[in-house]
Simulated assay, not measured.
Amino acid sequence: MDAESRDETTQDSAEAAARRSRFGTLPEPVRLEDTVEERPATRRDPARDAYDPHEWLVRYCL
């Protein structure tokens, strides 16, 4: 084996080691809960939401 082929072999094994360290394992699985973002479709309207549906229970039943 001459010096040039040894250098290529060393370079190839170094590249293979770098490739294995970067791509050798799969990434961690992503949970389904982490893939969904829930946001309200519209903004909250205080004028519309001023009515408390439970208020009449307190006002008329107690």
Rank of each mutant, 00 (worst) to 15 (best):
Y60F: 11
L62V: 05
R44M: 14
L62C: 06
D49N: 04
R39D: 04
D34S: 03
A47W: 04
E33S: 10
A17R: 13
A47S: 09
A50N: 04
D7Q: 11
M1A: 15
A47V: 06
R31F: 07
V58R: 12
Y51K: 08
A47E: 15
E38A: 06
E4G: 02
V30Y: 02
P53V: 00
D12W: 00
V36N: 04
A17H: 08
L57S: 04
P46D: 08
T10A: 13
L57T: 07
Y60E: 12
E55M: 04
A3V: 07
R20M: 13
R19H: 14
D12Y: 02
Y60S: 05
D2R: 03
S13V: 11
M1L: 13
A3M: 03
Y60R: 10
V36D: 05
T35V: 10
E37Q: 07
D2E: 10
R59Q: 12
P27N: 01
D12C: 04
A41Q: 11
P27T: 01
A16P: 00
S5Y: 02
E4C: 02
D34P: 00
F23H: 09
H54D: 14
D2P: 05
T10H: 07
R31T: 10
P53R: 00
R20E: 15
P29W: 02
P46T: 09
D49F: 04
P53E: 01
A18E: 13
T10E: 15
A18R: 10
P53C: 00
T10S: 09
F23P: 00
